[in-house]
Every structure is written in structure tokens, then in C-alpha cells.
């Protein structure tokens, strides 16, 4: 496995002098597979994230797209140190989170939050909405008693819910409303950075738009920075400033939004984009689809060289031997491919 040191982080840093809010270098997350009844020994690893480099600037939204099992959610969680990364550094405002101890990390969590995918599992069913949203305030000792209640009601109003709902339980709300509660919880500590992990994929079409709009409003209101993880390329295009495409634990392409959607360099990005159905029969009947063959290989035993070569129509001998370097091909446009374009 190679971790490219000259990834977008190094080059991005030289391009602009303002430091990035978040810099991820060589992030690797392997989950061990163990065997044995009493003495467990490691027999392999799920290589969920396998050397990922990127940065996020203050106030921007970076979209992270890929199919299930590509490691996009794991990347988000490893950044927030919900998993202890196997390797790599996560610089948040200059501090390497992977090197922080428990208490120091807990303090840092005030500045970074997460919005989860499942509006049913992400709220404690035995806590009232008031307690759920108020908990981060308590944890970080920001408000108590009446001040806390006032803040919770304000947050409910901000996310478009009735402020008098504080005494209700999550199960009394619809999926979209629950997602708003989760968003209110993440806003409570006034974070700078939010990882949105598929925040709308569990919602109905008409509700999705409500939540996307809310996230956009909140971003401009509170100057938030998002890492937006999703599998829906249309939604990612809509909300992101820059987009990173992941395949089997690696970022294969990263570029500004319109650049990526108009001029994808990596064959996987091209296939992914062409696979998305467009709600317009006039366009749809004329489109040329790239249909990939086969399934995504297992992250336990990823293909040699370029992970994508087993499904790639451009693959040549070199692709199965050498892992392509993740390098810049156009301004702010990185791709990891031997034959890009």
C-alpha cells in the first residue's frame, strides 16, 4: 500500500496561504478480522479506508461520494475519531486529532459535530427532545436550567420545529422531523465543522429537499463547514463546492464540483455519473450509459495495483501492477489513474 505524501494536502497548502480547517493525510482505517475462542489472533483486515488525503477549507462543503462499502462513512467517522485510525493524520485547525488524549479530544468535539443517516437510530428513544438537544450543552457545560431550555427552544426554532416540542419523544415525530432534531443537536455547541453522513438518504423525496435547504440555510447563517457524505450524486452536486469520489477505500478523484461533473477524469467517476438516471425522458433516451460489469470487490482482499482495474474498460497491464498516484491533472483537480480523461 502506498500513501502519497504529495497528495492534495501538500499541494493545496502551497496554492493558498490560508491554512485549511481540516487536513487529512494518509488516513487509513483497517478493521481487524480475528479468530480464536480465547486467544484471538488477527487473520486479516477489512481495509475500509486505505490512505486518503484531502483538505476542507473554512466555509466550504466537500462532498464525499461512492457506493456502499467504499469507506466514505468510515472516513467521516475516523476524522471525528469515532474510530481510532490505523494510520495517518487528521489536522483540525492545526491540531492533529489522532494524537489527542481522551479529555483533550472531548474538548475538541465542541468544534466538530456529526449528522447521522438514520433518523430512527440516531436519537435515544428514551430521552425527550429537550434532553437530546440539551445534552451537548450539559456535556460542555455551556448552559443549565432555564438558559438551557431557552437555548433548546431557540435551536428547535432554527431547524423549523415547534419550540414547545421539548417534552416529546423521538417516536412521536416523522423521519424528516427527527432529522431536524438531530441537526439541532449538532448545532447546540455552535460547531465550526459538521460531518453529514448520508443525512437525507433515509428520507422521502419531498422531505429530502426540506432538509437540504435547511442545511444550506444553516451553513450561510452560522458559517459552517460541511463534509457531506452521500451516495446520491445529484444531491452532492447540488450542495457541494468540491467533490471527492471514493472507491474501495481510496479517493480516486477530487475536483471542484462543476469541473468534476463536466470533465470527470477517472473512469470510475465517469461510470458513476453515467449511471445516475435523470428525471427527463428527453435526456434519458439519448444518453450513452457506461455499464460497469461485475460487483465491487471485497475490501478484505482488494485487487492489486489500481483497485478499480477489475471493472475498468481502459485497464492495461500496468493497472494491475502499479497503484496509480493521486496527482493533480488540472488546477484543483486530482485523480488516481494511469489513463485519465
Amino acid at each position: 500500500m502506498t500513501v502519497t505524501a504529495r497528495g492534495p494536502v501538500a499541494q493545496g497548502s502551497t496554492a493558498s496561504h490560508a491554512p485549511h480547517l481540516l487536513e487529512v493525510t494518509g488516513l487509513t482505517m483497517h478493521f481487524p478480522i480475528t479468530q480464536g475462542l480465547v486467544f484471538q489472533r488477527q487473520v486479516g483486515a477489512v481495509r475500509a479506508v486505505d490512505g486518503v488525503d484531502f483538505f476542507v477549507d473554512k466555509g466550504e462543503t466537500v462532498g464525499l461520494v461512492g457506493e456502499s462499502g467504499c469507506g466514505k462513512s468510515t472516513t467521516g467517522r475516523a476524522i471525528l475519531q469515532l474510530y481510532k485510525p490505523t494510520k495517518g493524520a487528521v489536522l483540525f485547525d492545526g491540531t492533529d486529532l489522532t494524537k489527542l488524549g481522551g479529555e483533550a479530544m472531548r474538548k475538541q468535539r465542541r468544534r466538530m459535530q456529526m449528522i447521522f443517516q438514520d433518523p430512527y437510530a440516531s436519537l435515544n428513544p428514551r430521552m425527550t427532545v429537550g434532553n437530546i438537544i440539551g445534552e451537548p450543552l450539559e456535556v460542555h457545560e455551556l448552559a443549565k436550567g432555564q438558559a438551557k431550555l431557552n437555548r433548546v427552544q431557540e435551536l428547535l426554532r432554527v431547524v423549523g420545529l415547534n419550540p414547545y416540542f421539548t417534552n416529546r419523544y423521538p417516536h412521536e415525530f416523522s423521519g424528516g422531523q427527527r432529522q431536524r432534531i438531530g441537526i439541532a443537536r449538532s448545532l447546540a455547541v455552535e460547531p465550526d465543522f459538521i460531518v453529514c453522513d448520508e443525512p437525507i438518504s433515509a428520507l422521502d423525496v419531498s422531505i429530502q429537499a426540506q432538509v437540504i435547504n435547511l442545511l444550506e440555510e444553516l451553513q450561510s447563517k452560522f458559517n459552517l463547514t460541511y463534509l457531506f457524505i452521500a451516495h446520491d450524486l445529484s444531491v452532492v452536486r447540488h450542495i457541494s463546492d468540491r467533490v471527492a469520489v471514493m472507491y474501495l477505500g481510496k479517493i480516486v478523484e477530487l475536483a471542484d464540483r462543476d469541473e468534476l461533473y463536466k470533465r470527470p477524469l477517472h473512469p470510475y467517476s465517469q461510470a458513476l455519473l453515467s449511471a445516475v438516471p435523470i428525471p427527463d425522458p428527453a435526456v434519458e433516451t439519448k444518453r450513452q450509459r457506461i455499464i460497469l460489469t461485475g460487483d465491487v470487490p471485497s475490501p478484505v482482499n482488494p485487487p492489486s495495483g489500481c483497485h478499480f482495474h477489475t471493472r475498468c474498460w481502459k485497464a492495461q497491464a500496468v493497472c494491475s501492477e502499479v497503484d496509480p498516484e493521486f496527482k493533480v491533472h488540472a488546477p484543483r483537480h486530482w485523480a488516481a489513474c494511469h489513463f485519465p480523461g
Partner: peptide, 11 residues
């Protein structure tokens, strides 16, 4: 379940 992750992420 995600609410346990949520609690950890909250600090």
C-alpha cells in the same frame, strides 16, 4: 446504533 455514536461525537 447511531445515537451512541452521536453521544460520543458530542463529547
Amino acid at each position: 446504533l447511531e445515537f451512541i455514536d452521536a453521544a460520543r461525537a458530542m463529547g
